[in-house]
Simulated assay, not measured.
Amino acid sequence: MDYLQQSFAVRFEYKVYFTEHLFSAENVAFRDFLNAQKGNTARKLLFVIDKGVVETHPDLQGQIRTYLEALEGYVLVPEMLVLEGGEGAKNNPQLFDQLVEAVNAYGIDRHSYLVAIGGGSILDLAGYAAAVSHRGIRHIRIPTTVLSQNDSGVGVKNGVNWFGKKNFLGTFAPPAAVFNDYHFLTTLSDDDWRSGMSEAIKVALIKDAPFFNWLEANATMLARRDMPAMQYLVERCAELHLQHIAGGDPFEMGSSRPLDFGHWSAHKLEQLTGFAVRHGDAVGMGIALDSAYSAVSGMLDEAAYKRIIDVLQVLGFAITHPLMEISSEQSAVIRGLNEFREHLGGQLTIMLLRGIGVGEEVHHLDTALLIKASELLQHHDAVA
């Protein structure tokens, strides 16, 4: 039998910038990036902005236009698309159609840029539209929430929800650049400020005990919206996520998903509540459940388990939800395990904890122990 074999590698490289007031005249970060990419012909910029960001920063569109007026080599398209953000953006096919239609109408080619400003949902939606238009146009992310600045916005994933399932449609398409502007965090609601911190707890628990110790020591300050503390959290969390992406499986070809610690039940809870529960809040409860399971299975000592729950609660997280309670094989959240296995593409692989900063993957969760873990959280929540 004859055959031909091909093998090649594609190098991806992008920078994540940390700044404030990105579109003020004095801030050269965005301008310098674009100037470094200039070609022989003018390149177009299509901006997509989260409606919530426009409402809390009403001067933003004017600032962008003024900032880009003097920039040579680029053309700002006349319309800035303002889309409803939140998880609903990833559930609405009409928004995807609107984005792709704008790419077509304004002639956004593979040398132009789609620039998305908003929370993780808008970034996911815009990144997906960019990835499938012309088989991939360049996109720039400007995350505006804690969750998107420290986790989803700095990674390589894009996607939308389909069939009622989280990120059923999606791509791996790295951004051209990410600009984290801390000023956007100042206008977040308390709920959005809090919910983004769950991903920092997650990555600290599985990768970095000193970072968890820092989170524990600074939890009260973070809950009180101390900005210097939040800036450190965002940058360290983003750094750990970027290190993981560079660690050998950036496009998740295998079944190992260490950064999905706490996510199997979180994704199911989001679905069961019609996405009324924020992703970060759901992840916080998922972390609590997997930490409780680690404890009742004998992997994690009781003192470490209590430290985790205490940090979550000091930061303001609920640690369980009626739809996350497990009493039998028929409990609704249990179906999330099979869906997670499908998402992984084969073998079930769940990250649990051997200690603070020490994760260990397992390939089976025992229902009896899940029931016990769920009961432990319900009791803890009741007496907290």
Rank of each mutant, 00 (worst) to 15 (best):
H57I: 08
F12D: 02
F172S: 12
A276C: 08
D97P: 00
G62Y: 07
A89V: 07
E302D: 13
V16D: 02
E239Y: 13
Q378H: 04
S195F: 02
N91R: 10
A288G: 09
G298I: 12
F212N: 03
R31Q: 06
L71A: 05
N92M: 09
T66Y: 04
V333H: 01
P250E: 04
Y305C: 13
T19R: 04
Y113G: 01
G52K: 12
Y17I: 08
A382N: 12
E360W: 06
A282F: 10
E270M: 07
Y182W: 13
A217P: 01
R335N: 14
A303P: 02
M221E: 10
F168N: 01
A130V: 05
A29F: 06
D192R: 03
K165Q: 14
K202T: 05
Q94S: 15
A276R: 14
L348N: 01
G136T: 06
R225C: 03
A105K: 13
V383C: 07
L34D: 00
I122Q: 04
H134A: 14
R43E: 05
L259S: 02
G280P: 03
G39M: 12
A304T: 05
D109Q: 06
P175C: 09
K372L: 11
L348I: 08
A384V: 08
S297C: 14
R65I: 12
K268M: 15
Q231C: 10
P93L: 12
Y106K: 10
N27Q: 03
G107T: 00
A130E: 00
N92Q: 10
M299L: 15
E339Y: 06
G118P: 07
I334Q: 02
F317Y: 12
L147T: 08
F275T: 09
N104S: 10
L323T: 05
E84D: 13
A204L: 00
D249W: 12
Q231H: 11
A126P: 07
R31Y: 14
T367F: 14
D192M: 09
V156R: 01
Y232C: 10
L185E: 01
A42H: 04
R110W: 00
E252L: 07
G286N: 08
A176S: 14
L114W: 01
F8Q: 07
N104G: 11
Y305G: 01
A105T: 13
S152Y: 05
M299T: 03
A89M: 06
H57Y: 15
Y113I: 05
F275A: 04
K268H: 03
A266S: 15
V54R: 06
A288I: 09
R224A: 15
G357P: 10
E252F: 12
V54W: 02
G274K: 00
Q98C: 11
G280R: 03
L83H: 01
H379E: 14
K44Q: 14
I49T: 09
L353Y: 00
L337I: 15
A318I: 00
R31F: 12
A25P: 01
E239T: 15
I122F: 06
F12Q: 08
Q61R: 10
G62W: 09
I49D: 01
G346C: 11
I64S: 02
G120V: 07
E239M: 11
R354H: 05
I137G: 00
G39K: 02
P175L: 05
G62S: 08
V100G: 02
L34H: 02
